[in-house]
Design a binder for these strands. Sequence first.
RNA 1: GCCCAGAUGGUGGAAUUGGUAGACACGAGGGACUUAAAAUCCCUUGGCCAGUGAUGGCCGUACGGGUUCGAUUCCCGUUCCGGGCACCA
Length: 940
Amino acid sequence: MAKEYNFREIEQKWHRLWTERQTYKVGEDESREKFYVLNMFPYPSGAGLHVGHPLGYIASDIYARFKRQQGFNVLNPMGYDAYGLPAEQYAIQTGQHPEKTTFANIDRYRQQLDKIGFSFDWDREVRTCTPDYYQWTQWAFQKMYNSYFDEELQKAQPIEKLIERFKAEGTWPADEKAQNDLLMNHRIAFLGETMVNWCPKLGTVLANDEVVEGVSVRGGYPVEQKKMRQWCLRVSAYSQRLLDGLDTIDWSESIKETQKNWIGRSEGAEIEIPYTLSLTGETEGAFTIFTTRADTMFGVTFFVLAPESELVDKVTTPEQRAAVDEYLKYVKSRTERERMIDHTVTGVFSGAYGINPITGDKCPIYIAEYVLAGYGTGAIMAVPAHDSRDYAFAKHFNLPIVPLVEGADVSEESYDAKEGTVINSPISEDKSVKYDGESLCLNGLSIKEAIAETKRFVKAHNLGRVKVNYRLRDAIFSRQRYWGEPFPVYYKNGIPTMIPEECLPIELPQVEKFLPTETGEPPLGNAQIWAWDEVNRKIVDKKLIDEKTVFPIELYTMPGFAGSSAYFLRYMDPKNDKALVGDEVASYWQNVDLYVGGSEHATGHLIYSRFWNKFLFDLGVSKKDEPFQKLVNQGMIQGRSNFVYRIKDTNTFVSLGLKDQYDVTPIHVDVNIVKNDVLDLEAFKAWSPEYATAEFILEDGKYVCGWAIEKMSKSMYNVVNPDMIVENYGADTLRLYEMFLGPVEQSKPWDTNGIDGCFRFLKKLWALYWNKEDNLTLTDEEPSAESLKTLHKLIKKVTADIEVFSFNTSISAFMVAVNELGQQKCTSRTVLQALPILISPFAPHIAEELWEAIGGEGSVCDAKWPKHEEKYLVETSVKLGVQFNGKVRFDMLFPADATPEQMIELATSAPEAARHLEGMQIVKTIAIPKRIVNIVVKPN
RNA sequence: GCCCAGAUGGUGGAAUUGGUAGACACGAGGGACUUAAAAUCCCUUGGCCAGUGAUGGCCGUACGGGUUCGAUUCCCGUUCCGGGCACCA
C-alpha cells in the first residue's frame, strides 16, 4: 500500500506555513520586472461564495504563480467592494448597522477564500467602506470638482486655468453666484439639474447602467424620469479618449464592441434652421438640428422637436397652443418604460415652419416623443424616404415622401441604407438656394460623397458645422442612501464648497434609522453631528448651523462605482496616508497587466474606472492612460439542478426512466444529496420532514434524478459550495476541476460528476513519488529518452497554454504525462523534480508537499519555471500518413531529417504505394513535414 | 432593426489556425484483484456495413453550396442558440 495522498493534512500544513513564512508578501523590487494581476474584487453578499465565484480567482492565480516562477515580481492583491445596496436594505429591515453585516460577510468570504490556496498578498487588502480607503475616493472627487476638461488639450486641467481664460476673454462675471454657475458647466464633478432615473421604491437615483428596460437592476423596481439636482461626473468629456483607448488594450472584441456601442460616436453635421410662425410670416429665429445624413437635405419634408425641448414654447403658435399642451401632458404621463416598449406614432403640429436652408422650402415643425431631448440638439430634420422613424411619422400624418436614391422604392418602407447614387438633389435648378453664387448639387454622387459635399457646403457658407456626437452620458454621481461614501462638501449660502483636503476623510456619520427622514431628506438627514464648522475646521452638531461659520453638509452619498473606480491604484500602496498612491510606487507598478472579471461590468465599472483613471492620469497620479492592459472575462457558472418526480397526490417518487408511466410533478432536489444523478435515499428522507416517509419506485435498484441547467441559486437547490468540494476532494482538486471544466471565458454549468477524474490525476501524480514502503522512489539514474520526451513535451505544452489562458488543455497534457511516466516507471530525479514546479500554479498544495519531500529549495512558488529543450522532442524517424487524392492510404516511417523531396521519393517507391499507383499517373505531390505526403494521381 | 460571438459523440470539451476529427475527462459496457464493498488496474466506447478474426469499406464537425490534392478551420447563403445596443436622427 503506497503512501496515501492526504490532502487535508497537506493543505492545512501549507496554509499554515504560507502564513508563517509570508510566502505571498510582495514589495517593489527594481531588480525584477513587475507583473500586476488583478481580479474584480467581490461584493461580500450574505450568501457566501458558490463554486462560480472562485473561477476567475483560480485562473488569475494560476497565471500569477506562473509569472512569478518566470521571474516576475507579481502583485496579486484582493479586497472587498464593501459599500452597496443589499447591506443597506438588510439594515433597513433588521436595524443592524450595515458595517456589522458587511464585516461579518467579509470574514466569511475570507475563510472560504483561504481554503482554496490563493497567492494573494493579504497585507494589501482594501475595503472601500473604511475611512483610510474612501479618503481617496473623496479626494479624487474634490480634484474632479476643481478641474475642467480642456477640449483642445483633450485632458483635465485645474479650474483656475479656466478662470484665467474667462478673465482674459472678459467673460468672467463679477457676481459670485454667476461665477459659480459658469464654472459648474465646466467642472468634471459638478452639480447639475438633470433628468435622472428616479427609483421611488429604492428611494434613490440610479445611473444609466443600473437601469435595464425601465426597471432597477437591483430589485427590479420601476424607474421614472425626474428632474433633480444631482452630483454628476463629466464622463462624456472623455468620450473620444475612452473610444481611442480601446485600440491600445488587449480586451475581447465583444467587450470593446459593447463599450463602443455605449459611447456611441456618430459623426454628423449641425445645421441652423430658421423658422417662421406662418407660411407667409417673417423669420422669428432659428434652431439647430443634428444629422448624420447631411446628404438628405433635399428630402426634408418636416422638422421634429423633442417634447422636452426649450424651443417648443417658442415655436408653438396661439392656434396650436391647446393641442400642443395636451400632447405635452400626454407625454409627461408616460413612463420611461412605456415609451421604450410602445413605439406607436404620436406627435402634434406646432404651427410653425422651418426653412430648409438648402432648398428654401418651408416645412412644418412637429413635436413628437420619438425625438429625444438628451441627444444631439433635441431637434431633427425629417427625411421620411430614408429614415424608418420619419417614414412612419410621415405616413401617419400624411406628409410628403421624397426619394433621393436611385432605384429606391419608398412606397412601402423607407430606404435606410447608406448605399446608392443620389437623385432629386435638387429636383430642378430653382429648387436650390444660391449662396455667394454657389448652390448645392448632389445628383450623381454616391451617398458617401454627397455627405462630404454637403458638409463642405454647409461649412463654407456658414449654415452649420461638422459635429461629432456621443451617446455616452455624464454619470449621475449621488445617491439618496446611507451606506456609501459621504461627499466632502458643505453648502455655504446654497453654493457647494469643498471641505479642505487636509480635513479628509469626512467619515460617514452614525444614524439611528437608515430610511429617509420624515421630511423626505436622504438618510444622512438623520445624522445629528453633521454640520461643518468653517473656523474650527471640524464636523459639529447640526444645531449649530448659523450660515455664518457653520454650514450644512451634503446629505447625498456616492454611488457604488465610486469606490471601485481606482482601487487598483490603492493596492499598490494601501497604507499610504499621504497620497492615494506614492509616486515612486505608482511608477513601479504602472497599471494592471491582467484583469480578470465578468463581462457584465462592460458598461458600468469598466467605463467608470477607465474614466477615473484617465482623470488621475491627467493629474499625473496614475502613470498609464489605460488602467487594465489585458482583460479576461470569465464565464458564468450556471447551476445544474436535479429533480425527483413525485406521483401526484402521493408521497411516492419515481425514478427518471419510469416517470412517463405516471402522472408526476418534478420537484427540485438538493444537488448535494445526489451523486452522478443517483439520489441518496436516506439523505433525501432526512432533507425535509415532508419526505421522511417518502417511498420510491427504483430502476436497477437506484433512484435516478432528472436534471436541467439553470441559474445557480438557493431556490433551485443547485448551489454547490466550494467548502464542500474542498472538504471531500481538497482545494487542489477543486482548482483543477474548475479549470478542467472548459475554457475560462466560456459560461458553463457546474457538474460535480466529473470531479473524480481530477482527483484521480492528483493521486496518480502523488503515487509517482512513493514506493510500496512509503519511501521516495527518487533515484539519480539518468532518465530514459522516453521520460525526457514526456517531460519536455509537457513543459512545452503547459508553458504555451498558460500564456494563452488555455488551462483545460494544460491539465489534459498533465494527465497524459503522468500516465506515461507511470507506465515508464520513471524514478529519475531529473524528471520528478520538475513536475511539482509545473503543477504548482494549478495545484499549489500538493506541489509544495512534493517539492519539500524531494528536498527542493525554499517554496516551490519561487522555483524557476523549467524551459523545454527541443532536442529531447526530436524524433529519429517520423511516421507520416501517405495519401492519394486526399485519402490517407497508409502510414510509413521517414528519417527525421528527410527533405520533402526525399519523402515524396520514398513514399512513391514504397511497396504499399504500388497498388495505388498501378495504372495511374502522378499529377502532383505535396509533402508537409511531420504531417503528410500527398500524391495526386489520375488514370493513365 | 443594427453589431458581436457561437453550433463538434450520451456529456464537458480537444484539434499545433488548411493536413489522419473526437485528445483529455466524465458517463456507459466488459474484465482483473477482493468473502464483500470501497479503492486500484486493464479492455471497449461517433454511426452504419462486411468478416470467425487481426481488419476493411462507407457516412460523419447545425443545414445548403463554393474554393482546394485536402475544409471543423477559408468564402457565399440558410437555420438555431447566446451577448450587446436600440425611436441615438
